[in-house]
Design a binder for these strands. Structure first.
Length: 655
RNA sequence: GCCGGGUUAGCUCAGUGGUAGAGCAACCGCCUUGUAAGCGGUUGGUCGUGGGUUCAAUCCCCACACCCGGCUCCA
């Protein structure tokens, strides 16, 4: 047999024996590569390492420390978990078990049984035995008729086979099983366990091991809330013990930053159950921060050419019939109040009211773009199970603006908005942005295709002209128009969707909005909906998590705490406090009734940016001892230089 | 809304079919303190709400409210 030539991703060619596999290729390159290899991409198809190679193949070896490699590892671990569960719970039906970001899950139908947290370690034990047995994953393709016999007792598998071979498969199905019409691929790793699967998998179960089962929950079969409820186990799996531990540490870190926990600890706000779910009350310290956020926002909008408006919390139902919201979102609105002069709803959004302001009198093209801004509080009856601290809440305040402009102004308006958004978010400490374009939902939309095309084109051309890169989310738009969502990355790498810019040709039509053009004709304005924080509450929650409660000085409820060493220094502490307060700083004093160490500790736990200690030396020298958050102690700093330093730190150049 | 788990002092959490306990916090003393918990004492709870079972319910059962983990949803 003659040798074959294989191309590598870097363009080099390699001559191999004709019976070579992806694994032998890896071995021929280096021992370490062979050791790290979990799968390969051959001519753009992801395959097992055992796959035979052919002359001319382009082959990339996937290693376990890459995202693609971890994906294989996680998917294989999911198989082992399913194997363990089937072993331990006779009669269980297995459904699908994909790899996901950071891990995997598998969904089971256990009949009336449910998993408990205690089951997890038992399942883990069984998995470890399967891993220790080092069972090889063997792929085969079998005819559909044979597969239906093999999985005869597994109704979910039969359903998947029917969909894949019947042409009704979706991406979930296709990820589960390779279907070429009359055959399906399966992976078997022992006499007792076989699963429908596209693959690839690691060579054998012994390759796995750095995993942890995390939680049990439920999920709907195929995401359909009318369908069967399945039992899901989530797990995580990594290429090494260190990587697993690092990930688990990240989870602990995320928990430490949980805004719901910090809101209690720092006395920022609460969700009294007497109020009802998803409704918050802001305590004084939280309110200070919120007010500063709002003040900053107002200042930026003021200088950004916005006009401030206010609108009520209630409206007659006819308004929301006109806007179309009642047709689409009646379920998400608080129920109507029947009054003697009509039916009223708490407002779920501000835009219809801003339309009324625009329509309040005749408008000229000279007024455009007209930018109306409001910190508008809205109420949405979010389903009970979806509430989540400040991130998903039923009463919230949008930093909401509606910009009415001409077709000609649209692109430049969007471009300047992109700058405005980033500039405002940067002030709150976010540096890393990503952009996402959402296009028309094929079902939930109003307006003609032409209008949608024009609007989408406007957003695309603005994004292109601005020069930012973006991803596209098909079908994710609001019912009235396409949108750009802006996500930020936080201090521990998580992303949050905050800002949104939505292009709307529909509401102007529904409200019959017009302006007089320079030729005297009546024209329809285009409307942009946009919010930067999104919701003040949610943005606040994100800030808490981003800073782990240690807000930057300008936002801290208490900026400076003064600790007199002993009783004798309290007068001096008071004098320092008066001096700093007079310069606009938020200062308090912790009296000498407790030991200094304890007061330091308390102040640190409250994450106060500056703790000043004053004792005999400071009284005589008119200085303070400065403990800046996260920094070493500085003794003998003059009061004025401390004040200058903090005032410089908290000043803004852009307002 | 669905599945599962919860709700005990301001906070974090023990505990029991015979109406409850710790630590921290708060308050009162003592100590007068130079960088992450000094000492002693006191106060504080209709055991989420409403029904039921029981001689007796915080505990067992039911309903509801709220919270948590997911699913679904998110104008």
């Amino acid at each position: 047999m003659s040798d074959i030539t294989i191309k590598l991703p870097d363009g080099t060619q390699k001559v191999m024996p004709s019976d070579s596999t992806a694994l032998s290729l890896a071995s021929s390159i280096s021992r370490n590569l062979a050791k790290a290899a979990v799968s390969a991409v051959v001519d753009d198809r992801e395959v097992d390492l055992s796959t035979p190679l052919n002359h001319g193949n382009v082959v990339q070896i996937i290693t376990v420390d890459s995202e693609a490699g971890r994906h294989v590892l996680r998917h294989s671990t999911a198989h082992v978990m399913a194997q363990a569960v089937l072993q331990m719970y006779p009669g269980a039906k297995y459904t699908i078990g994909p790899a996901i970001e950071n891990g995997f899950y598998y969904d089971f139908d256990l009949g009336d049984r449910v998993f408990t947290e205690d089951d997890l370690s038992l399942v883990e034990d069984t998995m470890r035995k399967i891993i220790a047995a080092n069972q090889p994953f063997v792929r085969s393709e079998i005819p559909v008729s044979e597969a239906l016999v093999l999985f005869a007792s597994q109704s979910y598998k039969c359903e998947i086979i029917a969909r894949v071979t019947g042409g009704g498969a979706d991406s979930v199905d296709n990820a589960e099983v390779g279907g070429s019409g009359d055959s399906v691929s399966i992976y078997r790793n022992s006499d007792e366990f076989v699963d429908l699967c596209l693959g690839p998998h690691v060579a054998s179960t012994g390759r796995l091991g750095h995993f942890k089962l995390q939680k049990v929950s439920s999920a709907y079969w195929r995401g359909n809330e009318k369908g069967p409820v399945l039992q899901r186990i989530y797990g995580t799996a990594w290429e090494s013990k260190a990587a697993l531990e690092e990930y688990l540490h990240r989870l602990v870190e995320a928990e430490r930053r949980d805004h719901r926990k910090l809101a209690v600890e720092l006395d920022l706000l609460s969700f009294p159950s007497e109020l009802g779910g998803g409704l918050a009350v802001w305590h004084p310290k939280g309110a200070i921060i919120r007010k500063l956020m709002e003040d900053y926002s107002r200042a930026r909008h003021q200088s950004g050419g916005y006009q401030f408006v206010f609108t009520p919390h209630l409206s007659n139902a006819t308004l929301f019939q006109t806007s179309g919201h009642l047709d689409f979102y009646a379920d998400g609105m608080y129920p109507p109040m029947e009054m003697d002069n009509g039916t009223y709803y708490p407002k779920p959004m501000n835009c219809p009211m801003h339309c009324l302001i625009f329509r309040g009198r005749q408008r000229s093209y000279r007024e455009l773009p007209l930018r109306l801004f409001e910190l508008g509080t809205v109420y949405r009856y979010e389903r009970a199970g979806t509430l989540h601290g400040l991130m998903r809440i039923r009463g919230f305040t949008q930093d909401d603006s509606h910009i009415f402009c001409t077709q000609d102004q649209l692109q430049s308006e969007i471009i300047s908005l992109l700058d405005f958004v980033m500039s405002v978010l940067k002030a709150f400490g976010f540096e890393d942005f990503s952009f996402h374009l959402s296009t028309k939902d094929p079902v939930k939309y109003v307006g003609s295709d032409e209008i949608w095309e024009t609007a989408t084109e406007a957003l695309v051309s603005a994004l292109d002209a601005h020069g930012v890169s973006y991803s596209v989310k098909d079908g994710d738009a609001a019912f009235y128009g396409p949108k750009i969502d802006i996500h930020v990355r936080d201090a521990i790498g998580r992303t949050w969707q905050l800002s949104t810019i939505q292009c709307d040709f529909n509401l102007p039509e529904r409200f019959d909005l017009e302006y007089v053009a320079n030729d005297g004709s009546r024209q329809r304005p285009i409307m942009l909906h946009r919010a930067l924080f999104g919701s003040v509450e949610r943005f606040f929650g994100v800030l808490v998590e981003h800073y782990a409660g240690a807000f930057p000085t300008w936002l801290s409820p208490v900026q400076v705490r003064i600790l007199p060493v002993a009783l004798a220094h309290e007068d001096y502490a008071q004098a320092v406090a008066t001096t700093l307060s007079a310069q606009g700083l938020r200062v308090d004093i912790s009296e000498a009734s407790d030991q200094l160490g304890k007061r330091i500790r308390t102040a640190k736990l409250e994450k106060i940016p500056y703790v000043l200690v004053v004792g005999d030396e400071d009284v005589s020298a008119q200085t303070v001892g400065v403990n800046a958050r996260g920094a070493d102690v500085e003794r003998g700093v003059s009061i004025s230089s401390f004040a200058d330093r903090v005032l410089t730190e908290i000043s803004f150049s852009d307002i």
